[in-house]
């Protein structure tokens, strides 16, 4: 069953068309990698799906209900959590507070505490820093915190924007492993936007390749990795 269906989606920034006529589907419990260079429209795609940006035309549904033109705070209540680009944590709050805000909307203190505990089990380093200001965290820890915050919202669809940005290879590996682990253990549907094409396609089930706002190819991640034409043109090796 397709749970996320995007069809003929077009999005513009003023006069500039950022996405043109994009269509793809993501199955329940699947990890899809969205690959493309800078300016391919990956971030715009995620921001449109999470309600931060308005679409010009086209449709997008999650579990057969429209998600375009909805507010992000409402989409969170429908199970869509977005970890935006650049370590989306609030540096002025403590680590614990950053996690708590993900669960405020549920008004369920014990449920939120359980979710925080699970996030800490996934990223034990957060547990050691609970009362510190998020400002004191390293880049990798911030990314963990951002994902952890999204998890406290108990999402069914997780939208991740470049979690590897600016991180050391070893940390990237840890974070990707954690993402894969999440998908499997919680049967989470994940859309992962990445420039780091190889590592992303390796953990992904399916892939979508964007170039200058247009969809170039989509399909099985393994097949995309092997396609010689794509390799030289878009995957950069």
């Amino acid at each position: 069953m397709s749970s996320l269906v995007v069809s003929n989606l077009t999005v513009s920034h003023g006069a500039i068309r950022a996405l043109r006529d994009i269509s793809f589907e993501v199955q329940e419990g699947e990890l899809t990698a969205i690959i493309g260079a800078n300016g391919a429209g990956k971030t715009t795609l995620l921001r449109t799906l999470s309600g931060l940006k308005d679409a010009e035309s086209g449709t997008a549904t999650w579990r057969d209900r429209n998600i375009l033109g909805k507010r992000p705070e409402d989409l969170v209540r429908r199970g869509i959590s977005h970890v935006s680009e650049g370590k989306s944590v609030i540096p002025e709050l403590t680590v614990r507070e950053n996690l708590v805000i993900g669960g405020l909307w549920r008004r369920d203190k014990s449920g939120t505490e359980r979710a925080i505990k699970e996030a800490v089990e996934l990223f034990p380093r957060l547990g050691e820093r609970m009362s510190q200001s998020a400002n004191t965290l390293s880049g990798g820890e911030r990314q963990m915190l951002a994902i952890g915050r999204a998890l406290v919202s108990r999402p069914r669809l997780l939208l991740l924007d470049e979690p590897s940005l600016g991180l050391a290879p070893l940390i990237i590996e840890q974070i990707f492993a954690a993402i894969k682990n999440l998908q499997k253990s919680m049967n989470l549907t994940v859309v992962l936007v990445e420039q780091n094409a190889n590592s992303a396609l390796e953990i992904a089930d399916t892939g979508v390749i964007l170039n200058l706002g247009e969809l170039v190819a989509s399909g099985n991640a393994g097949e995309l990795l092997e396609d010689p034409a794509l390799k030289s043109a878009y995957l950069g090796y």
């Binding site: 999470s50 931060l52 507010r71 992000p72 705070e73 969170v76 209540r77 959590s81 977005h82 970890v83 935006s84 989306s88 944590v89 609030i90 540096p91 002025e92 709050l93 805000i101 993900g102 405020l104 909307w105 915050r149 999204a150 919202s153």
Partner: peptide, 13 residues
């Protein structure tokens, strides 16, 4: 401090 992240966390800003 960060209205966008607050919204993504589900807070009605």
């Amino acid at each position: 401090f960060q209205p966008e992240i607050a919204r993504l966390a589900g807070i009605r800003v």
